[in-house]
Amino acid sequence: MSILRQSSGFLLQVALTFLGLLAVTFFIGRVVPIDPVLAVVGDQAPRDVYEQARRELGLDQPLWTQFAIYVQKVLVGDFGQSLVTNRPVVDDIARVFPATLELATFATIIGVALGVPMGIAGAVWQDRWPDQIVRVIGLVGYSVPIFWLGIVSLLVFYGMLGWVQGPGRLGVFFEDIVRPVTGVLLVDAALAGEWEVFRNAFGHVVLPSAVLGYFSVAYIARMTRSFMLEQLNQEYIVAARAKGMSEARVIWVHALRNVAVPLVTVIGLSYARLLEGAVLTETVFAWPGIGRYLTTALLAADMNAVLGATIVIGAVFIGVNLLSDLLYRLLDPRAT
C-alpha cells in the first residue's frame, strides 16, 4: 500500500520535473528576439496577413493558453518544422538519435568494463599505487576539456599512428550499402552480413567512444572506490575473513554484491551524462548524432530544432534517472 503511494508520488514528481523542463524551453522560445510571425510571413507582409498568421500561430492567446497548447503539442511529438532541413524536427531527431545511442552505449561499456575493476583495485590497495592511478585518472577526467581530448586523440591515433578511421561514422565507399533497420550501424551491418562495412564502422566508433568512455571510467572508478571502501569496513567482511574465506571471494562475491546496488544508479547517471559529453564529442568527430544536430541548429538559429533536441535530451536524462532509481528500489529491499 505504502509502496503504491510512494511510487505514485514519485511519478508525480517526475511529471512535474518534465513539466518544469517544458516551462524552461517554452520560456526560452519566448525570449528569443526573433519574431515567429515574421519568420512565417516575411518582412514585407501587409498588416492583415500578419495579424492572421499571428492568430493562426496562437500568439494572440494568453500566455497560459499558449503554454497549454505547447505542452499538448510536445506530448504528441510535435516540435514544429526545422528551418534548415524543412522537415519535422521529430523526424530529424529520430534519424540522428541512434548514432548517439551507439556512441553512448559503447562508452558506457568501456566505462563499466574498466571503471569497476579499477575502483575495486583502488579500494583494496588504498593509498598504494593502484589507488593513486585511479585518483589521477579521476582528477584528469574532471579537468580535461573533452573536445580537446578528442582532437589530440585524433591527431595521435588517426593522424600519426593510423590505428583507427578518421572522423565521421562510415567511410565514403561504404555508405548506403547497408539498409538501415535499427539505425545502429554495427547492428545493421551484422544483420546484413556485410562484415567489411562492420569493420569500417567499428574503426570509426572506437575512438569517439573511447574518448567519451574515459569520462565514464573516471566517474565510475571514483564512485566504485568509495562504495567499496565503505563495504570493506563493515563487520560482515571481518566475519567472512575470520572464518577463513579467501580474499578474492570476500571482495568479488560478498562486498561486490553490496556495491552493485548503488553502482546501478551511478552507471545510469553516467549514461545520461554521456549525452551531454556527446554534444562536444560529436562535433569533434563529425559524428551525425543528436549532439551535432543540436549544435548545427544552434549556429543556424533554428530554434524549433534547438528546443526539440533540448527537450529530447532532457527527457532522456529524466527518464534514465527515473529508471535507475526504480531499479535501485527493486534491487535493494531496504529502500522502499
Binding site: 526560452i28 554534444v279 549544435t295 544552434l298 534547438v306 533540448t310 529524466i318 534517472n321
Partner: peptide, 24 residues
C-alpha cells in the same frame, strides 16, 4: 526546491546551449 530540481534534472551544458541560443 521543485524549481531547483528541474534545473538539476537537466544536463547543464545542454541548458546553457539553449539559453545561449535564445540570448545570442
Amino acid at each position: 526546491m521543485r524549481v531547483t530540481d528541474v534545473f538539476l534534472a537537466f544536463p547543464s551544458l545542454i541548458l546553457a546551449l539553449a539559453f545561449v541560443a535564445a540570448l545570442g
